[in-house]
Simulated assay, not measured.
Amino acid sequence: MRILSWNIQWGRGADGRVDLERTLAAIRAAGEFDLICLQEVACNFPGLPGGAREDEPAFFARAFPRHEAAFVAALDVPDGEGGRARFGNLVLSSLPLGQLLRHQLPSPADPAVPSMSRACLEAMVLTAAGWMRVMTTHLEYYSVRQREAQAGALRALQLEAALLAARPPAKGKESSPAFAAHPRPASAVLCGDFNCEPGSPAYALLQQPMPGG
């Protein structure tokens, strides 16, 4: 299985110009991927440097018709013109997707620095070896406190999934589709922009052994 993970900065290049076609060309030039995990994907967010008026999740979904698209908006705010502006993480999968979970990550108060809402998209993916989880996220850049809290939350999600896989919920509500059992295995791959250097506390926290691997 081949996975690409890239913070595309809403399609903005080193020259400051937003060009989704250029971003798309770079992805295609990198090769064929079963899963494409993108961070900083915008939808109708004109206030970003260079502008981001387009529905970028829809753009990439059209560009990869053989992939299924799933998006989580970490930030979802009014655009000032009667619509919504959204900013978050996108997964494109050529493998079958099962349950999708969208997690808002913690942002403990840290008034000394700017910060924004962060989220993690957790997708159950059916591979040749069975179900596995692919998680994509983008941790806080400015606040060390928030970044460490978010790394801890990702570890908690892994522990939760491992415990649920070992001790699945009781049956008894089979007549209700809302209570139907859906795979959520312990095995996982974590992708994203973690905004931390090797040796930093958040990086060390993510590197510690976790159940399920």
Rank of each mutant, 00 (worst) to 15 (best):
P49L: 04
K171N: 04
E32M: 08
A156C: 02
M135F: 10
R133Y: 12
R155Q: 02
A52C: 11
P169V: 14
V189T: 11
V91T: 14
R147Q: 07
G47I: 07
I36T: 05
A119Q: 11
A61W: 04
V189S: 04
H182E: 08
C43V: 06
P96A: 07
L105A: 01
V77G: 01
A29T: 07
M135A: 13
G130S: 08
V41P: 02
R22L: 00
M1D: 10
K173T: 13
E32V: 14
C196H: 03
G83R: 09
R84A: 12
T127M: 04
V72N: 10
T137P: 00
R102G: 05
L38F: 08
M135H: 11
R66Q: 13
D110S: 02
M124Q: 05
A129Q: 13
L157N: 10
A30M: 01
C196E: 03
L48E: 10
F33H: 10
L24I: 05
L190V: 14
G50Y: 13
Q208I: 06
A161I: 11
F60M: 04
M116I: 11
V134G: 01
A29R: 12
N195P: 00
S143F: 03
Y141M: 13
W6H: 08
A70I: 02
A14R: 10
F45H: 10
G98T: 14
A61T: 00
F194G: 00
A186S: 13
L101E: 13
Q158E: 15
R155F: 07
I3F: 09
G82I: 14
Y203C: 09
G82P: 09
Q9E: 15
P78V: 02
L190R: 08
Q104H: 11
L75M: 11
D19T: 08
C191A: 15
R66T: 15
T23M: 07
P211Q: 11
S93N: 06
R86D: 07
A109D: 12
E140M: 07
L38C: 10
E197W: 13
S143A: 00
L4C: 11
G31H: 00
A74G: 15
D55L: 08
S117M: 09
V125H: 05
Q150L: 14
Q150F: 14
H67Q: 02
G80P: 04
